[in-house]
Design a binder for these strands. Structure first.
Lengths: 205, 205
DNA sequence: CCTCCCCCTGTACCACGAGTACAGTTGACC
DNA sequence: GGTCAACTGTACTCGTGGTACAGGGGGAGG
């Protein structure tokens, strides 16, 4: 139904690139319409305001991110059926993926919007929240599966451990952005990976 | 020399609170001058533009943050002279401090500016960068001291491990902000703490 | 007491970006 | 030929950042 031109999609593409590069507020509607080669009226036909654009961007971003994780850990599972090794392989793949991105990962829209959240309405903030809760659930499930097989060497809160995946990635991306280096996020993920190796290492006795 | 009224300081106080609450761009000069009870002209007398305000805020913020860390780990060192235990106590104190803040830690100015960095000039970005490099140096030093006494169970890059402190805190604050929970950052710090315990645990043999 | 200078106040003004409000055009499909 | 979705184009309002002063008030030094 939208294989004609898909102006809406083109707007989202341009906007996402610009927002990841400069932040939401610094991205003007003017430059979006210039990039998408439409008129200002055309933009407001698709999105009633910048909030609507933000919501649509977040929805799309979260969906592709979810697909990416599904994919990544499915591939990892094919390589090794053990839950711990699957996790370790998945994180390695994630780290490699982040490293392969030429000028570094563009940065996470979630963190970006989290720190400007007063610009947005409740709908956007709630979307943001649900995305992180979704990741928490996903990773907590995987960690519980691991813990059932390998008893953790130290007691850990599984929700918090699930959050730590998101936190380490987000934190790494903040560092990367601020330092203008390009592999901080992948390094942080690899450190987190060694954490998991130590945490779920079989007891020696 | 500035015990009279210290308008400049009052501007910074108001601005910092507002920026941590809503982000830099969402904070208008109008509301700052209203809060500080000065005129717009007065504001521009102290800061030639918003960039100058950002730079001053960052400088002040970084300085107080550094003092805070100095303090925290000095207290930890008093409690236990061993480098590993000093680190573990310091992180515990940090986690407790974050938890005690009534509606959660306001969020880190560093991450906030990192995600809107195109709004700022090179001076601000460089300040931001130097702050994180400073923390890297601080924590790397501490970890090297620990590693000299307790051989790490897995090989780790000391720069990356130093960055991980900042990363975990920043990431935790992002989660906290987006989830609107209040103890994510301290939980993440505590998880990082168990990482260190496992990483530097004496070998059993 | 006068003067200078710092620290402002107050006003007027410009540029630019978000958002509103339409009126009109174009092309596809029934 | 008519309808409708998907636009274009223009014109306007409003908030905010930023400039450019002109002037005031009060404390310190001569």
């Amino acid at each position: 139904m939208e294989q004609k031109v898909d102006t809406r999609g083109r707007i989202l593409d341009i906007a996402e690139a610009a927002v990841l590069d400069k932040g939401f507020e610094a991205t003007s509607i003017e430059e979006i319409v210039a990039g998408a080669e439409i008129s200002r009226g055309g933009f407001f036909y698709h999105f009633k305001d910048k909030n609507a654009l933000a919501r649509a961007m977040l929805e799309r971003y979260i969906e592709t991110e979810d697909v990416l994780y599904d994919d990544l850990f499915a591939r990892a599972r094919e390589l090794n059926d053990d839950p711990l090794h699957c996790m370790l392989i998945g994180l390695k793949l994630l780290a490699e993926m982040l490293e392969e991105m030429p000028q570094g990962h563009p940065g996470c829209v979630i963190a970006s919007t989290a720190y400007q959240d007063r610009l947005f309405d409740e709908g956007v903030r709630e979307l943001n929240r649900q995305a992180i809760l979704g990741w928490r659930k996903r990773f907590r499930g995987m960690f519980e599966e691991i813990a059932a097989k390998y008893e953790p060497r130290e007691p850990v809160n599984m929700d918090a451990l699930g959050d730590m995946v998101s936190g380490v990635v987000e934190g790494g991306l903040v560092l990367q952005r601020a330092l203008r280096e390009h592999n901080n996020a992948s390094e942080q993920i690899m450190l987190f990976r060694t954490y998991l190796k130590l945490l779920f290492a079989p007891k020696p006795n």
